[in-house]
Amino acid sequence: MEIKQQQKKNVEILSLVGRLDANTAGILEKKLIPLFDSYSRDVVIDFSELDYISSAGLRILLLAAKTARNKEGSIVLCSMQDFIREIFEIAGFMPVFKITNTLEEALQELEK
């Protein structure tokens, strides 16, 4: 898996490319969790180029959501392909995360 990172108006945008599974979850964890070391960080995770997510990947997202909550930061997931969204739905994770259809919507969501 590859993680593309960019910043827009203090928002950290991570784009996930490839497979997020038990083998690659650690890479995301090392990159994502430290972002919340400072308070009130806004992070968007772009799922548009993600081909697969396993439960290990979901765990990192949960961990990030929890960390964000503790540090008064925000995390928004966006641009999920249908089969990824399905996994979130099955696991009952839809209420846990803020999920938008596009990156623009995610940025707007954070401006609220």
């Binding site: 979901l58 949960l62 739905e89 099955i90 696991a91 009952g92 994770f93 209420p95 846990v96």
Partner: peptide
């Protein structure tokens, strides 16, 4: 059997 699915254990 996909009706009434809840969230995974250990989260909420």
């Amino acid at each position: 059997l996909d009706k009434m699915s809840g969230i995974a254990l250990g989260i909420a």
